[in-house]
Design a protein around this nucleic acid. Structure first.
Length: 485
RNA sequence: CGGGGCGUAGCGUAGCCUGGUUUAACGCGCGUGGUUUGGGACCACGAGAACUCGGGUUCGAAUCCCGACGCCCCGACCA
């Protein structure tokens, strides 16, 4: 009951700041009050609580299945990496050095060489695979690992940027550049599927600019999503390294021509940040909204009763229903709280469907079903739930994606001049699509004038027959600009 | 790293300016008992804080002074 401001019309929320007035405050309240995650003893690190971790697990399981389906195998590499490994690739170390966390002591004495808590594992992969790859017959090597990484961040936010986070990092090594580049886009497509089909988050896949690419990559690709506050969030990335890392780490193979060659490598990752994206795309003034496919709890049953007799009546009536819904992630809430309290709490936590069962319902052999998506309420016969609930979950999943897509569409504009961009970004953000010549000076100029950066050059977009919106030279591509997380 | 703010019970705060009826208060939460239960219930009783840490001033410090540490916000930085 921390908030004194006037209640929203519906009067359902008491504990979270208003999304419309204080988006960052709202986000923070929702993450903590919905019991997804909390701060920890160390600044910038977080405790992921069971409800939040269950959400991550659902996303992870879906992605892990896709990764395996596309031919990759899970490995595990150590978290401690000798500092010298990181220092071998100049661009890479330059990009990451400020974020290193070093271990300098062990066993009570100073270490010969500091160890880095992995910020990412490219260097370790390339080094290790030297022992396993000799011939073109040993390629491709398609690896993935689920782990934690550390980056010493100055400003942190739960899920979006923490010093330690969970992700998967895939690393692959190929005989040819064609094969490696194909891999980059195969994995980007996997990420698109996870984001759009599982998390109901519309994304734009495409290529990052030179400035925005990963340190050490030839080029980077990403999927970009638009949050409800108009800011962009990179939801996953996939990089092409060419021979950059294999040369730097002297990973070679003997090719079909009997000559020593360097494999072409890639890496790609999706992190717990996707959880933050999901919250900021679907959440509203009442809290989170979980897309049914990844929701830790898809259906919650709130029994309403006054007496022991009513209680057992409800329990008895529910028994066959529970059998019909055995495929659903379902929770019964028999806690000793008033129903209204439970309604609010489950809405805050974003459970897609709530089933209310009380004496009035049972008298008609029905239950009251309420959708979190729009609070639509309807009576459904007890025997129909086994069919109606799965259909409803599917319908909610689709509706959530459609609504997010509509938001993105109405918040995407085409502009063709720098003054128009400056004027636009003074009012807010959203996606801004412009013709662009591709020069880094333009990016820096726009960033200085507006705070916005290039997010992505959409896959499949063609060079418009137009002048670059920033400098007026002939455009080489279309590009999306936005203020970003 | 620059600018600003804050450290008082599990959480959110009041008290501080103007030291002493403060035995540090209030709300939420927590425990027990009871009445309740279809949109965040109510009553009663109860547990819970040597006020971030270290110095100093003073007869007396949560309160004033100095220092340290931690956290938050803004900026810079940033897969």
């Amino acid at each position: 009951m921390a908030v004194e401001e006037e209640q929203p019309e519906k009067g359902f929320v008491k504990e979270i700041r208003k999304q419309s007035q204080d988006f960052p405050g709202w986000y923070n309240d929702v993450v903590r009050k919905a019991e997804l995650a909390d701060y920890s003893a160390v600044r910038g690190c977080m405790v992921i609580r069971p409800y939040g971790f269950a959400l991550w697990e659902n996303i992870r399981n879906a992605l892990d299945a896709l990764i395996k389906k596309t031919g990759h195998e899970n490995w595990y590499f150590p978290m401690l990496i000798p500092l010298s490994f990181l220092q071998k690739e100049a661009e890479h170390v330059e990009g990451f050095a400020p974020e290193f966390a070093l271990v300098t002591r062990g066993g009570g004495k100073e270490l010969e060489e500091p160890l880095v808590l992995r910020p990412t594992s490219e260097t370790l992969l390339a080094t290790t695979l030297r022992d396993y790859v000799q011939s073109y017959r040993d390629l491709p090597v398609l690896t993935n690992q689920w782990n934690n990484v550390f980056r010493w961040e100055l400003r942190t936010r739960l899920f979006l940027r923490t010093m330690e986070f969970l992700w998967q990092e895939g690393h692959t090594f190929h005989e040819t550049s064609e094969e490696a580049e194909k891999e980059v886009y195969t994995m980007l497509e996997c990420y698109r599927q996870i984001a759009e089909e599982w998390c109901a988050i519309p994304v734009i896949p495409g290529r990052k600019s030179e400035i925005e690419k990963f340190a050490g990559a030839q080029y980077s690709t990403a999927i970009e999503a638009l949050m409800k506050d108009g800011k962009a969030l990179q939801a996953a990335t996939s990089h092409y390294f060419g021979e950059n890392f294999t040369r730097a780490y002297d990973l070679t193979f003997t090719g079909r021509n009997n000559e020593k060659q360097y494999p072409h490598s890639t890496s790609w990752g999706m992190s717990t940040r996707i959880v933050g994206a999901l919250i900021m795309v679907h959440g509203d003034e009442s809290g989170i909204q979980m897309p049914p496919m990844v929701a830790p709890i898809q259906v919650v049953i709130v029994p309403i009763f006054r007496s022991e007799a009513e209680r057992s009546q409800i329990a008895a009536a529910l028994a066959p229903v529970l059998e019909d819904l055995s495929e659903i992630r379902l929770k019964q809430d028999w806690r000793d709280q008033r129903p209204g309290f439970k309604f609010s709490e489950w809405e805050l936590k974003g459970v897609p469907v709530r089933i209310e069962v009380g004496p009035r319902d049972l008298a008609r052999n029905e239950v009251t079903v309420v959708r979190r998506y729009d609070r639509a309420k309807e009576a459904i016969g007890l025997r129909d739930l086994g069919v109606r609930i799965p259909a409803m979950l599917k319908q909610i999943q689709d509706a959530m994606f459609a609504r997010a897509m509509e938001f993105r569409t109405t918040n995407t504009v085409r502009l063709d001049s720098l003054p128009a961009m400056v004027e636009h970004f003074q009012r807010g953000s959203g996606f801004v699509l412009t013709p662009w010549c591709g020069s880094a000076e333009d990016e820096l100029k726009v960033k200085e004038l507006t705070g916005a950066t290039t997010r992505v050059i959409p896959t499949g977009s063609v060079a418009p027959a137009a002048a670059c919106a920033v400098c007026g030279k002939p455009a080489a591509t279309e590009v999306i600009w936005a203020k970003a997380y």
